[in-house]
Design a protein around this nucleic acid. Structure first.
Lengths: 230, 230
DNA sequence: TGCGCTTAAAGTCAAAATGACACTAAGATA
DNA sequence: TATCTTAGTGTCATTTTGACTTTAAGCGCA
């Protein structure tokens, strides 16, 4: 009864998809949460945009499959990767045959903004602002919303914000990340107090020169294992 | 590439398991987090205890499968049910053939203590205290630990504690739930302030008689949709 | 050279939340 | 009636949080 196998003819198919977040400046230079989507080239939802993903290979872990899809779609490596949820409702693909039923284990990933700026983009792979998505295939709009909630929530207590940034960064840059993800401005002084109190960053000793104001300290993320929680 | 099907011969099998929590008094009458396990009657791990579960039926949702397993194992309905995680490492079942690979979508559930007291128990279904588990089959010890962490964490911000209790209850009973799950004593006064401030309960107007002290107010949980988050 | 602009970085203050603890209320028991 | 036990209220100091002020240190420009 437990963990036993069953006839493959009646087993649901297993796929892995990934919600890949990065930050990109919009027209006014403000950072926006952005993610890549792929255009479907077959039914159902032919021509519509969908999350990158595909079947789970029998020889790879779930997170490996997510990383692989990420690499295939964007050419990038994830800076952070975590399982989001397994979606398996019967009505995920309206009108389709039961035999085509797919259970999707969805991951969410963060990639660096600088790397993402050089990512793959093509006719069938395009990056969208998270709050301006078109109607997506399957239940993928709901999945993205759920992933966004998790990202915002996790930002508050986990050390993941630096995943969008380079090795070293200023507190203002880190604050920009929080502001973009949370969608509201934060008090610079209080942000500094929070960040220093939590010990999530440490000063490098270097300062960033070339600004037209007082040169800010450069920080790096304190060494904490990052990546999948489980 | 997205959501497509693949040859069933190389597809991993999909199972659903459930970590079912309830509270039971131990020898000294202290409430303890308790869960049912089933004894395996086939290889691998023949004779060892494991989480209740089984293959996902092609006609049922993931949460339905979890509920069904819960019912089959314990004869009970869940008071709370939420997806925990999808476990799919390649090495979950050491030494087994790739073709037998199983990805388990694990749920965690809460059942009422009073109902659980009358639950099914047999030679091959036994309830164990969560902090005194034997060595379980597969990676099920890790899964239970993970579920316990989620339970403790969720208790702090979600209205789930009453799922262990009857329709009405005293604040002392609710506090006992928190203490059993968190594993530490809580200040009665501060607990009352927290609970009343969060508005998670409302007084029924009734009092519990028959105690050998001042009769406490009976409360009920305020009406909030409970169950799966997603 | 020095003035104004901008952001860095430190500091202030009141309000809110938290933890420890004291005190009164109201039943049962003897 | 006195005592025991838990219910329920209240107090106080500490910590956390949000809003805001002040000083530091660069740059651009007159």
């Amino acid at each position: 009864m437990t963990e036993s196998t069953q006839s493959a003819l009646v087993a649901p198919n297993l796929a892995v998809s990934t919600v890949i977040f990065t930050l990109r400046p919009d027209a006014e230079g403000k950072l926006k949460v952005t993610l890549p989507l792929v255009r479907r080239i077959r039914a159902p939802f032919d021509g519509q945009w969908a999350l990158p993903g595909g079947p789970l290979n029998i020889t790879e872990d779930l997170s490996q499959a997510a990383s692989r899809n990420l690499l295939e779609t964007t050419g990038l490596e994830p800076r952070y990767l975590e399982q989001l949820y397994a979606f398996g409702s019967l009505d995920r693909s309206p009108g389709s045959n039961l035999a085509d039923r797919v259970v999707s284990v969805v991951y969410w990933a963060l990639v660096g903004s600088d790397e993402a700026a050089a990512a793959i983009e093509s006719e069938n792979i395009r990056w969208f602002e998270a709050d301006q998505l078109p109607q997506l295939a399957f239940d993928h709009n709901q999945i993205v919303d759920y992933a966004l909630g998790r990202l915002r929530n996790k930002l508050a207590y986990a050390r993941i914000a630096h995943s969008f940034l380079a090795e070293t960064f200023t507190l203002a840059q880190l604050r920009e990340v929080y502001e973009a993800v949370l969608g509201r401005e934060l008090d610079p002084g209080n942000f500094r107090r929070m960040v220093e109190g939590d010990g999530i960053v440490e000063p490098t000793g270097e300062r960033l020169a070339g600004t037209r104001h007082r040169p800010p300290q450069l920080y790096r993320a304190t060494n904490t294992a990052t990546g999948e929680t489980k």
